[in-house]
Amino acid sequence: LHIEINVNGLRIELHNVSEELAERIREILEKVDDREEARRLAEELIK
């Protein structure tokens, strides 16, 4: 499954994740104000 999410102008592509996991990642990242911090957090979440 390939999912693309957009959060605060940051486009993140997720591969091989469930829709539920992608939604949780999006919800978490929406709470982060700083774009660079959101990017770093996204990288950690999808490892």
Results as ranks from 00 to 15, higher is better:
residue 1 L to F: 04
residue 1 L to D: 07
residue 1 L to G: 13
residue 1 L to E: 07
residue 1 L to I: 13
residue 1 L to R: 10
residue 1 L to P: 08
residue 1 L to T: 11
residue 1 L to V: 12
residue 2 H to V: 15
residue 2 H to F: 05
residue 2 H to W: 02
residue 2 H to Q: 06
residue 2 H to T: 14
residue 2 H to M: 09
residue 2 H to R: 05
residue 2 H to A: 06
residue 3 I to F: 10
residue 3 I to A: 03
residue 3 I to W: 08
residue 3 I to E: 02
residue 3 I to Y: 05
residue 4 E to R: 01
residue 4 E to T: 15
residue 4 E to N: 07
residue 4 E to S: 11
residue 5 I to E: 02
residue 5 I to A: 00
residue 5 I to F: 01
residue 5 I to Q: 00
residue 5 I to W: 00
residue 5 I to G: 01
residue 5 I to Y: 00
residue 6 N to I: 15
residue 6 N to H: 09
residue 6 N to Q: 06
residue 6 N to A: 02
residue 6 N to Y: 01
residue 6 N to C: 11
residue 7 V to Q: 05
residue 7 V to Y: 02
residue 7 V to F: 05
residue 7 V to A: 05
residue 7 V to P: 01
residue 7 V to T: 02
residue 8 N to Y: 00
residue 8 N to L: 00
residue 8 N to S: 03
residue 8 N to R: 05
residue 8 N to I: 02
residue 8 N to C: 09
residue 8 N to G: 14
residue 8 N to D: 15
residue 8 N to T: 01
residue 9 G to F: 00
residue 9 G to H: 02
residue 9 G to I: 00
residue 9 G to P: 00
residue 9 G to Q: 02
residue 9 G to E: 05
residue 9 G to D: 14
residue 9 G to Y: 00
residue 9 G to L: 00
residue 9 G to W: 00
residue 10 L to P: 04
residue 10 L to F: 03
residue 10 L to E: 15
residue 10 L to N: 15
residue 10 L to D: 15
residue 10 L to H: 15
residue 11 R to W: 11
residue 11 R to Y: 15
residue 11 R to Q: 14
residue 11 R to K: 14
residue 11 R to T: 15
residue 11 R to A: 15
residue 11 R to L: 15
residue 12 I to F: 07
residue 12 I to E: 01
residue 12 I to C: 08
residue 12 I to G: 01
residue 12 I to T: 01
residue 12 I to H: 01
residue 12 I to W: 03
residue 13 E to I: 15
residue 13 E to Y: 09
residue 13 E to G: 03
residue 14 L to V: 08
residue 14 L to K: 00
residue 14 L to G: 02
residue 14 L to S: 01
residue 15 H to C: 09
residue 15 H to R: 05
residue 15 H to I: 10
residue 15 H to M: 05
residue 15 H to T: 06
residue 16 N to T: 04
residue 16 N to S: 05
residue 16 N to P: 03
residue 16 N to D: 08
residue 17 V to H: 02
residue 17 V to R: 01
residue 17 V to D: 02
residue 17 V to A: 12
residue 17 V to L: 09
residue 17 V to T: 08
residue 17 V to M: 07
residue 17 V to W: 07
residue 17 V to S: 05
residue 17 V to Y: 05
residue 17 V to C: 03
residue 18 S to E: 04
residue 18 S to N: 08
residue 18 S to H: 05
residue 18 S to W: 04
residue 18 S to I: 03
residue 18 S to Q: 04
residue 18 S to F: 03
residue 18 S to R: 04
residue 19 E to T: 13
residue 19 E to S: 13
residue 19 E to G: 09
residue 19 E to A: 14
residue 19 E to P: 14
residue 19 E to L: 15
residue 19 E to Q: 13
residue 19 E to F: 14
residue 20 E to D: 11
residue 20 E to N: 09
residue 20 E to S: 10
residue 20 E to F: 03
residue 20 E to M: 08
residue 20 E to L: 09
residue 20 E to P: 05
residue 21 L to C: 05
residue 21 L to S: 07
residue 21 L to A: 10
residue 21 L to W: 11
residue 21 L to E: 12
residue 21 L to D: 11
residue 21 L to P: 00
residue 21 L to V: 14
residue 21 L to R: 06
residue 21 L to M: 13
residue 22 A to E: 03
residue 22 A to H: 05
residue 22 A to G: 05
residue 22 A to Y: 10
residue 22 A to T: 06
residue 22 A to N: 02
residue 22 A to Q: 04
residue 23 E to C: 06
residue 23 E to S: 12
residue 23 E to P: 03
residue 23 E to H: 14
residue 24 R to E: 08
residue 24 R to N: 09
residue 24 R to G: 05
residue 24 R to Q: 11
residue 24 R to T: 09
residue 25 I to C: 02
residue 25 I to W: 04
residue 25 I to H: 00
residue 25 I to V: 14
residue 25 I to S: 00
residue 25 I to G: 00
residue 25 I to Q: 00
residue 26 R to H: 05
residue 26 R to M: 10
residue 26 R to T: 06
residue 26 R to L: 11
residue 26 R to K: 13
residue 26 R to N: 03
residue 26 R to C: 02
residue 26 R to E: 02
residue 26 R to A: 06
residue 26 R to D: 01
residue 26 R to I: 10
residue 27 E to W: 02
residue 27 E to T: 12
residue 27 E to C: 06
residue 27 E to F: 02
residue 27 E to P: 01
residue 27 E to Y: 02
residue 27 E to Q: 12
residue 28 I to L: 12
residue 28 I to E: 08
residue 28 I to P: 00
residue 28 I to C: 06
residue 29 L to Y: 10
residue 29 L to T: 02
residue 29 L to R: 00
residue 29 L to E: 01
residue 29 L to M: 09
residue 29 L to S: 01
residue 29 L to N: 01
residue 29 L to A: 05
residue 30 E to Y: 06
residue 30 E to G: 11
residue 30 E to Q: 12
residue 30 E to I: 13
residue 30 E to A: 09
residue 30 E to P: 01
residue 31 K to Y: 11
residue 31 K to T: 12
residue 31 K to D: 10
residue 31 K to M: 10
residue 31 K to A: 11
residue 32 V to R: 05
residue 32 V to A: 10
residue 32 V to G: 07
residue 32 V to H: 12
residue 32 V to N: 11
residue 32 V to L: 11
residue 32 V to F: 12
residue 33 D to P: 12
residue 34 D to Q: 07
residue 34 D to E: 07
residue 34 D to S: 09
residue 34 D to H: 09
residue 34 D to A: 06
residue 35 R to V: 14
residue 35 R to L: 14
residue 35 R to S: 12
residue 35 R to F: 14
residue 35 R to E: 13
residue 35 R to C: 07
residue 35 R to A: 14
residue 35 R to P: 15
residue 36 E to C: 07
residue 36 E to N: 09
residue 36 E to Y: 05
residue 36 E to G: 07
residue 36 E to Q: 09
residue 36 E to D: 13
residue 36 E to K: 09
residue 37 E to R: 11
residue 37 E to I: 09
residue 37 E to Q: 12
residue 37 E to F: 04
residue 37 E to N: 09
residue 37 E to W: 03
residue 37 E to S: 10
residue 37 E to A: 09
residue 37 E to D: 10
residue 37 E to C: 10
residue 38 A to Y: 02
residue 38 A to N: 04
residue 38 A to L: 15
residue 38 A to I: 14
residue 39 R to S: 11
residue 39 R to H: 08
residue 39 R to L: 15
residue 39 R to F: 10
residue 40 R to N: 14
residue 40 R to S: 10
residue 40 R to C: 09
residue 40 R to K: 12
residue 40 R to A: 11
residue 41 L to Y: 05
residue 41 L to S: 05
residue 41 L to Q: 10
residue 41 L to P: 00
residue 41 L to G: 03
residue 42 A to I: 15
residue 42 A to H: 02
residue 42 A to Q: 02
residue 42 A to K: 01
residue 42 A to G: 04
residue 42 A to R: 01
residue 43 E to T: 07
residue 43 E to C: 15
residue 43 E to G: 08
residue 43 E to Y: 04
residue 43 E to L: 08
residue 44 E to Q: 12
residue 44 E to G: 10
residue 45 L to W: 05
residue 45 L to P: 01
residue 45 L to A: 12
residue 45 L to G: 02
residue 45 L to M: 12
residue 45 L to Q: 04
residue 45 L to V: 11
residue 46 I to N: 03
residue 46 I to V: 13
residue 46 I to L: 13
residue 46 I to T: 10
residue 46 I to G: 04
residue 47 K to A: 11
residue 47 K to V: 11
residue 47 K to I: 14
residue 47 K to T: 12
residue 47 K to C: 06
residue 47 K to P: 07
